[in-house]
Each structure stands twice: as structure tokens, then as C-alpha cells.
Amino acid sequence: MNPDLDLTLHRVLRAPRAAVWTAWTDPARFARWWIPAPATCRVDRLDVRPGGGLVTLMSDDGVAFVPHVDATFLVVDDRTRLVFTNAVDSTWRPASPAPVAMTAEITLADHPDGTDYRVLVRHGDPAARAHHEKLGFLDGWGTVTAQLEEVAR
């Protein structure tokens, strides 16, 4: 972890690791937590394998959807780790995503109370990291993590 380039979030989720993994890998469950409520998510692609795509859209009214994430999975270690980036889109083309390019690493481990859940989001330079933090990284990722916990219970 490089504090000049990276943002982190760590929580103990009161849900079994297998259920947290399923919430990350099942499109219907993923759509229930990936975007902070009351906005809604539509999953167009969730191909959880190295080189697979992650494409989501979001809506404030449940009718009109706009692009949210178009990313590629880089690493998938069953029930322990997911790594994806939006710097390469789901068709493997270089991307310049708004609001910030990032690579996210999600790690899961057993914990006596459920799942040790860690997020490490890497950025290309200090300005991108600062911008992501200013946009509300902790609030946004914190909110969806709480939603993930509810779905996984």
C-alpha cells in the first residue's frame, strides 16, 4: 500500500465469506448492493474470471440508466481475491474513465465474526488519489460495503 497513491477500506462483515463471494459474483445479488441506495444498479455484464468484464449502469429513478462502470477483471482467486481495473474496459480497450482511473483489489478472509473484507484502490498518481478521496471514496465504498453485508447475510 502506497499512501500517496492508494485508498483503503477495511471492515468485518457479519456474513460468511462464501456468501460475500456470491454477492460479488452473482449478477442479481451484485445489482442489489453495488451502487449506493436509493440509486439502482443494472448489471449488463459480470464475467468473474481473469479477462472477464464488469459493466454496470445506474439510475436515480429506476427508468433512465446511465453508464457507471466498464472494467476488466485482472485476478480472480476463488473466494479470496478479486482485482479489476477500469483503465481497461470490458472489451480490453484502454480507457480514460470518469471520474478516475483505478485498480481495485478486494480480499476476503475468514473472521470469527464473519468475513474480513479489505478494499485497496490504486491510482496512477497522487492527484487521482486525492480526487477520488475528495469525491467521497470512504462514504461511497463504505455505503456499498454495508449494503453488501446486508445482501450477504
Results as ranks from 00 to 15, higher is better:
V119D: 00
N86S: 09
A18I: 01
V76A: 14
P94Y: 01
M1P: 14
R81L: 07
Y117C: 13
L138W: 04
P67A: 08
P126I: 09
R11C: 12
R45T: 11
N2D: 15
R93T: 11
T91G: 10
G62I: 06
E133A: 15
L7N: 08
F73A: 05
R93Y: 02
M1G: 15
A109E: 12
D113A: 15
A95F: 05
H68E: 05
M1W: 09
D6A: 13
N86H: 09
V75C: 03
M58E: 10
V63I: 15
A19Y: 03
L7W: 06
G51Y: 10
T103R: 08
A71M: 05
T25D: 10
V88W: 02
A95E: 06
L108M: 10
W24T: 10
T85E: 02
A104H: 02
T145K: 04
D60A: 11
V55P: 06
P94D: 03
V100A: 13
T103W: 02
V75T: 12
D4S: 11
V88A: 06
T56R: 01
H10N: 10
L57D: 15
F84I: 00
V83E: 11
T22L: 13
Y117A: 14
Y117Q: 13
R81I: 03
A130N: 14
G114K: 13
V12M: 07
D61P: 11
D47Q: 03
G136W: 01
A87P: 00
A109N: 02
V63D: 15
A37Y: 00
R11W: 12
R129M: 13
D26R: 08
L148G: 09
D110I: 09
H10W: 04
A98L: 09
L120Y: 04
